[in-house]
Write a protein that binds this DNA or RNA. Sequence first.
RNA 1: GUGGUUGUAGCUCAGUUGGUUAGAGCGCUGGUUUGUGGUGCCGGAAGUCGCGGGUUCGAAUCCCGUCUUCCACCCCA
Length: 456
Amino acid sequence: MAQKPSIPKGTRDFSPVEVQRRQYVMNTIKHHFEHYGFMPIETPSFENSDTLLGKYGEEGDRLIFKILNNGQYLSKVNDQDLQSKNEYKVSPQISKRALRYDLTVPFARYVVQHQNDIAFPFKRYQIQPVWRADRPQHGRFQEFYQCDADVVGSDSLLQEVELVKLYDAVFSDLKLDGCTIKINNRKILAGIAQMIGAEDQLIDFTVALDKLDKIGADKVKEEMVQKGISETAIEKLNPVFSLQGDFATKLQVMRSLLSESEIGLKGIEELEFINHKVVKLGLKSATLDLDITLARGLNYYTGCIFEVAAPEGVKMGSIGGGGRYDDLTSMFGLKNVSGVGISFGLDRIYLVIEELGLFPDSVRAGVDVLFINFGDKEAAHAMDLVFRFRDNGIKTELYPEATKTNKQMKYADRNQIPYVILLGEDEMAAGALLLKNMETGEQELLQPEAVIEKFK
RNA sequence: GUGGUUGUAGCUCAGUUGGUUAGAGCGCUGGUUUGUGGUGCCGGAAGUCGCGGGUUCGAAUCCCGUCUUCCACCCCA
């Protein structure tokens, strides 16, 4: 072997067991999406650059993978821009397409493009990979799967309620108990900013506030001062920094704090409605928690925002996120269509389930039964039975070579095949099969019909 | 994008102040009565020590660059 091949950073190969387990997670999510009435769509891996650029903020633009044009792409570049080595000026001239960064923006594009064929409200789900030129870390990749469910064309807060229930249903089904669905509302954040006279600095303000549980109140205040927010304004935020108690209690504190802000109170009302309904319906294993510091960088959100934290003790960033966006489709020319959606981070959910040892044993690649190959004559007979078994829904294979039994048994063992059938001269003469349970080592001589019955 | 960290056989890792033919465990492979795996015993193959430069009589070991890994920022799923 000369130079070892490799794959780009932040990407992975998946072994048979890994693929099987990923499909288990994916199928669970998909099952619940469909159960809730979402319909599947798919969009291209890459979009026109202008569809994506400018939708995720400055940071987002930097993380979008740009695709180099084909042909003589350099010949058309403005010489001056090329000389100046200004990538912001050159990159649009040499790249007209980019890999999708998430599933929400391509969906908004889809809705606008197909608006005449869509019956609103439109509920779609989408499970596809996305790409980000981020620096890899644990649970952070350059290629990863998102599983999104979105509703467009409905202002009803019942959608938010349904999405909270959907999160709970999926995580409960995956036995991932103890997830926290954090919820907040951009209107509340806007209200606070308004109250402290920092309306123009909403983004700076929320980004700083978002770090509260990570760096503490003092550092957050420091950062806000740095961003030009006045000290007296920050003093007014003290109730926010020390917010405690259950959902209703926290909401009460925020209500009095925001009594002067119309938009802030609207946000409070929305959350109250959602919480009330969710409490009434009940959650199986997740907890809905009001997190006033939750901001989320994606700047197209306008109402409720969600983020899901893994069960306590697991070191992992958010395993899901979402929110309401009132204006996303207007960027593509379709006004007054509100959307709300959530996303499941498949790869992170996988890592959490793995860490907690929650994958069922039944999630396994490979067959149920292996026929040992004793030679041409025996193999020919075995093949008949292999197909008969398969027709009866039993995953079956015949070892392709008549090598030593030892080796064939090892193969079965390595591949965690639960049963092996020995069909040699003696068994053929008796018209029977020797079925061996690889876990217990027990063997029994059975008629083929009896084996088929056993697997039903 | 910023700072740090890692890279030695298929895998997990040793490798002493730079000094002969670079080691171990697991795995793989062959044998151990030619129809029986997961725990035995004996043997074997396998590494331009991430890649490219440099210092040196001599580099896995020191220096620089580069890629990769993981971590902290940033941001997020």
